[in-house]
Amino acid sequence: MHIEAIKLKNFKSFRDTEMRDIPGYCVVVGANGTGKSTLFDVFGFLKDCLTFNVRQALQGRGGFSEVISRGADENALIEIEIKFRMEIASIDRLVTYIVKIGQQANKPIIAREILRYKRGRYGSPFHFLDFSEGGGYAITNEEDFDKPDEDLEREEQTIGKDVLAIKGLGQFERFKAANAFRQLIENWHVSDFHINLARGSKDAVGYDEHLSITGDNLQLVARNIHENHPDVFEKIITVMKQRVPGISEIKPVPTQDGRLLLSFQDGAFTDPFIDKYVSDGTIKMFAYVILLYDPEPHPLLCVEEPENQLYPKLLTELAEEFRAYANRGGQVFVSSHSPDFLNAVELDEVFWLVKKEGYTQILRARDDEQLAAYMAEGDQMGYLWKQGFFEGVDPQ
């Protein structure tokens, strides 16, 4: 499943903008304050809406008044539209999910929630899920494509006005597209990695299936992969040897008091180093490699400014690993300020954000004739970024 377009209305600085034809590996650049974190927070917001409800997701961001765009009409709605491609009944289909959020008696409500796609080659997309203010329907036999529209079976439902319909209906396999989109949201990963949380010994018992958002369970995940997926762990070590000079071995090591730490072996020394004494860059690169070679990979990764704590040479290596993850079927969104990182990306992979009259607009590198011409002549994206060739942005 692959996200192809995102359209936002009245979501913080995104008054009315759209990203189209999104590649599997998408790099977003822009000056501070242009909305890179806000763009990634769209994914976090939807995940919070699904995990909790819309009211709590908004509360965690300061409430409805802080999320809706400044200057929006008093009756305006927060609107998020995501188009993603998935296989349904052996046919690759473009599915659209729309959610519109407003207020009623000063309480947030879901004014409209729609999931639709075309049943056939022609005609308008059909609404397989359609809810308004806590009530609506979902089609239970959506894969019966031989039946005319009027013979499809609608299941009427009543839910809380601040609860996503896909939260409940997405649990059931018979709601094919809703189930798939719910799983996509539940399993995407928006990274907020912290070196200080990833270091040091950890309790040997805890969540170890996937790397957490902050990376505070790095040792546990490494042990899980080491013990249960030794071939994957060997691949991770091979990648680290190739990407980080000097690394010859990494092992999760239990301590005498029942905790867990990481041991890094530098080929130039006889004794290994525990992670407390290993460089920030090495720890962070290992965490990213763990994330990228997860035995059950996330369908979508969002990573902000991966260049922090990493030596410039490692940024090219990391950019290549992100692209390889996308080529294996995942999707990656990365934001960056680093010319060194951008020098390793391609023209089709880059979008940039600018603010005009207080609102964010999304531009694409390949649509800029000057950037496209320079790249065709062999220039690198990072040098063009640093020299100010991105319209409306001065990173210097």
Rank of each mutant, 00 (worst) to 15 (best):
S336Y: 03
L152F: 15
N141S: 06
N179C: 13
I362G: 01
M1Y: 12
D16E: 11
N75A: 12
N224P: 03
T238H: 14
L371M: 02
E66N: 10
E79P: 05
F269S: 14
E227G: 12
H229V: 02
H2P: 03
E349F: 01
E74F: 13
H194Y: 08
L301E: 03
G30L: 03
Q157K: 14
E66A: 13
G215E: 06
N327W: 09
E346T: 04
Y207N: 14
V190E: 04
I110L: 00
K147R: 13
L46E: 03
L218H: 04
G200M: 05
L260I: 06
L314E: 14
K7S: 11
F264L: 06
F273R: 09
F64V: 05
G170T: 04
P148I: 08
F45M: 05
V67W: 01
G246R: 11
Y325T: 01
P297A: 02
L315M: 10
E296S: 15
M240L: 15
I88R: 03
F264N: 01
L261F: 10
I68Q: 02
E349D: 05
T158P: 12
I80K: 05
G378S: 07
Q219S: 12
S248C: 14
E234M: 10
D275I: 03
A165M: 04
D151K: 12
F322H: 00
D73A: 11
L8V: 05
V232C: 14
F131M: 13
T238F: 15
Q157L: 15
T238K: 15
R112F: 12
F389R: 06
D257R: 11
I166Y: 02
T158S: 15
D275E: 06
E153S: 12
A138R: 03
